[in-house]
């Protein structure tokens, strides 16, 4: 759905995006992470034809950036960093204008659909200048989707929203994903990226890595399983450590933590051994590193 080759953007001497090689699949939520100044917004602007690349190529939905910009604009929706709504106009008027510009056939119907969906229908006649930041953000999301685009670019969609509104937006993103849309999500909210994204790209001028959140964790930290026992000692740990598939083993009080390549395959044997050794197992779970750990490790490794 989105493909870039050697995509580069320079502003004077400063390289904002360097040799970006990216493939975003149809229907996936692709998280684009990176620190401030990493080139995320610049990438989005290039892919939505708001700015031209300095070198390299990009295609969106089969249309090449720089050659079929109008076609790209027709099939993409964008939520910019700031909502950028017309404050002196009503919510309905704002959306009506953009629906017409996006060549929507049923302007009234689409405007009503999205205003209702994000709970703004009752405020449709109010001036946007009187809206809260969260309401403006929701309205801007409506605007990005009015023309039912195949690809949606969301730049910090839950930034500045209260928890309730942020959850509503996240649910909304999942729903539009269910409709088969490709979503390119720039966010600093790593928990949000973890929950929503099929794959994640970490960027810092150049792309550091792309993978699923699970694989990124596994690559960096491996997979770990934690056993909560009624009582644990070092002798028990030594017996388990002797198993050939145990990569790493440690005891923290009455908890045993094991590093495994394939917990689904090895956990049954591990449980059997512990039971045979007389251990009382209270809980078993996978020890997950947060995406924040992964992100900080990846970004930090480039400094």
């Amino acid at each position: 759905m989105i493909h870039t080759e050697n995509l580069t953007k320079k502003f004077g001497d400063r390289t904002a995006v360097e040799a970006l090689e990216l493939d975003v699949r149809e229907g996936e939520v692709f998280g684009f992470l990176g620190p401030n100044g990493a080139g995320k917004t610049t990438t989005v602007r290039m892919l939505t034809t708001l700015i031209g690349p300095t070198s390299g190529t990009a295609t969106v939905n089969g249309f090449r950036v720089g050659q079929a910009d109008t076609d790209i604009r027709r099939c993409t929706g964008i939520l910019t960093e700031t909502p950028g709504m017309y404050d002196r106009l009503s919510a309905e008027k704002n959306l009506t204008i953009f629906a017409r510009l996006y060549e929507v056939e049923d302007v009234k119907g689409q405007v009503e659909k999205y205003l209702r969906f994000l709970g703004l229908w009752d405020r449709r006649a109010d001036l946007v200048g009187n809206f809260s930041k969260g309401m403006k953000q929701k309205l801007a999301i409506c605007r990005a989707l009015l023309h039912e685009p195949a690809v949606v670019f969301l730049d910090e969609p839950t930034s500045g929203l209260d928890p309730e509104a942020a959850r509503l937006v996240r649910d909304f993103i999942e729903e539009i994903k269910a409709h088969g849309r490709t979503i390119f999500l720039c966010t600093h909210n790593l928990d949000e990226a973890d929950r929503l994204c099929d794959r994640i790209g970490v960027m810092k001028q150049r792309l550091i890595t792309v993978d699923t959140p699970m694989n990124l964790r596994q690559k960096l930290y491996g997979r770990k399983v934690v056993f909560h026992l009624r009582e644990a000692d070092d002798a028990l740990l030594a017996r388990v450590r002797a198993l050939p598939f145990i990569k790493e083993a440690q005891r923290v009080d009455n908890k045993l933590v094991f590093g495994l390549d394939d917990p689904e395959a090895h956990n049954p044997a591990l449980v059997r051994l512990l039971v045979e050794a007389g251990a009382d197992i209270q809980f078993v779970g996978e020890l997950r590193h947060s995406l924040e750990d992964v992100y900080l490790s990846l970004v930090g490794s480039t400094d």
Binding site: L50, T70, R73, T80, F98, L101, Y102, E103, A140, R143
Partner: peptide
Amino acid sequence: LEPLLATP
């Protein structure tokens, strides 16, 4: 202006 220019 940015959202406006993102339209066709």
